[in-house]
Design a protein around this nucleic acid. Structure first.
Lengths: 354, 354
DNA sequence: TTGAAAGCGCTAACAG
DNA sequence: CTGTTAGCGCTTTCAA
């Protein structure tokens, strides 16, 4: 009992063969040809004995686990956490489970996780990583482009279907807003882990004829973020754009430690726009990268490969937009902002079906 | 190639039997008895053909998937996200993978996920849920106590090994701090989803001879949180303790909308003490529930069952403690707080091995 | 209306 | 030193 009962034992007790049990419990077309009393007896016995089909055996037979792997950096970053919640919800609707694999950006671990599709452990992979542009040959060797794989935010991975955000649109919208608020001195704090943030920023500086200033920090290194904050404090731009909600909140924290306060002394903007930004104090203006959109796009593409064995390689580009909040409004205008209820980010992602 | 190569095909090309290949590639003791040139030939061919053992077949044979399931509400709540990061890292050290299953607190879904251990999909389960105290009979039917299962934060689940936090210690420490700062009017905002938070609060109110006041909201219902904030604004306690970092940040947001500001108008404390609280503006005093401690305890207990088939039921109780931050310090003292670098929460959880 | 047999890919025990 | 065989639990095809 502790180890569960097999279909063979169940069949024996029901006085039929394993095949019959399988057909009945799975409601296969042939089930109609099994006598009603037999069906009833099997079902009743299965419930009584708490029979559960062995998922491994079943997956092996059908050559599919109906599981998708999601490989990303870490969940403590709310952007990834939100993305996972959405992927799980959407995958569930399509009958798939999600195996989430945080790697802490350890390259070896990212490659190791990539293997899971080759070992048939999962049917497909969604991966948020730069390994395809950083080490293309190793990636291709471990996992040929024919594999069902969708790469997020790495447009250099030309061999694989990818989904990414177009930061230019959001950045342009942001600059328009900032300019209308009278800001001209706009800086960016970026680790250049993904190059398109800096690129979009520089482009907009040019377009709006502003002087660019990028403060660098090393990704995942808290001391470098602290140093970055010190540098920012000494130059103090009017507006600081942070590469992510998470880094933004840290910079604001360290700047406060240096006696520089937000929004009194400078305005802050973050990229991502998760709840962290929305419910910050004061709420942060952000370039929103909609995780539901990204989850939907990634899953759609992956399932197209999986279920229609469609091998076409596509590159989806998702729009970004600005959410204006208190952090970039001048004091007088802050009180005016009376956001309507429906504009608020919902507390939950859409409830799961069932 | 696209579908991968099997051990049989590999064996055929190497001119040996599947068994020999298996023994060599897994470095089984018998491998020493296989001639060196044969071993070399097999290894070389395996690399060339990019052979990967089928994980399903292997798991089926060894009757173990070396995968653990973690069932929780949602990852967008940073407490759970942090917990997952820690569980993944620790499980990895022990050679296990983690299958994370957010349920959005949907009861049916929680039960459904519980089945995964019965289907042998995973070797064991760590679950953060109240179903064992809420619907004990259904839970027991679906998953008998003999199953390898660890329940988090549900001490009513007497039949199962559990791991929970002792909020009393942290709450007492908090009240001591608050009293020393001169606060006497301390309220709690709680959804009573887990009853021990209110219980600890009430106990301390009694011990410190303060008047208790609990503001209720409905879990996962943003409008009720908004209403709760309105109620808080009208009564405005000196100190507000929020049931979680996440709800705390939301209440602070809504209170700001009502013109009540933190820390000027009231002091805020949250329970959890994740990065969200640490890097809030201003940093929030919190009762820290250390997720690494919880992850370690849960995994330890689960692996004890799994690897030593030790069936003893234990109830682990973890201490909580207070992190004092700017949010509960009076203005004059705020500047004094010059936290030492090593006290800061690390940016990353411990890096993964490998 | 049901059962028998083969096979999914791998490993362990036993034979040669 | 290496091969054969059986079996993990399930599904499917074919035969009765």
């Amino acid at each position: 009992m502790s180890k569960g009962i097999s279909i063979g034992e169940l069949a024996e007790r029901a006085g039929v063969s394993p095949a019959t049990v399988s057909i009945v419990l799975n409601n296969r077309p042939l089930a109609i040809r099994v006598a009603e009393p037999t069906r009833e007896r099997i079902r009743k016995l299965a419930a009584e004995l708490n029979y559960r089909p062995n998922h491994l055996a079943r997956s092996m037979q059908r050559q599919s686990t109906r599981t998708i792997s999601f490989i990303c950096g870490e969940l403590a970053n709310p952007f990834y956490a939100e993305l996972v919640d959405n992927l799980v919800a959407l995958a569930d609707e399509r009958g798939y489970r999600l195996l989430t694999q945080p790697t802490h950006w350890n390259l070896d671990r990212e490659f190791e996780m990539l293997e899971s599709v080759m070992t048939r452990e999962v049917d497909g992979i969604v991966i948020f990583s730069g390994i395809f542009s950083q080490q293309p040959e190793r990636a291709r060797r471990i996992c040929p482009p024919s594999q069902p794989l969708v790469v997020l935010n790495d447009p250099e991975a030309k061999d694989f279907t990818s989904v990414r955000f177009d930061l230019l649109s959001g950045m342009r919208e942001l600059f328009t807003h900032l300019e209308s608020e009278g800001f001209r001195n706009v800086a960016l704090a970026d680790d250049r882990h993904f190059p398109h943030k800096s690129a979009a920023y520089l482009k907009m500086c040019e377009e709006f004829d502003m002087e660019p200033r990028i403060f660098d920090f090393r990704f995942g290194d808290i001391d470098s973020i602290r140093n970055c904050a010190a540098q920012i404090a000494s130059e103090l731009p009017e507006v600081l754009i942070a590469a992510s909600d998470q880094v933004g909140s840290m910079l604001i924290y360290f700047l406060a430690g240096a006696g520089v306060r937000m929004p009194e002394d400078y305005a802050a903007v973050t990229i991502d726009g998760t709840r962290l930004a929305e419910y910050f104090n004061p709420a942060l203006t952000s370039i929103r990268q909609d995780t539901r959109l990204m989850a939907g796009g990634a899953l759609e593409e992956l399932l197209r490969k999986l279920e229609n064995s469609d091998t076409e390689i596509r590159h989806l580009v998702l729009p970004t937009s600005v959410r204006i909040n208190e952090s970039t409004l001048f004091r007088g205008r802050r009180k005016e902002l009376n956001r309507k209820k429906d504009d608020r980010m919902p507390l939950d992602t859409k409830p799961l079906s069932k």
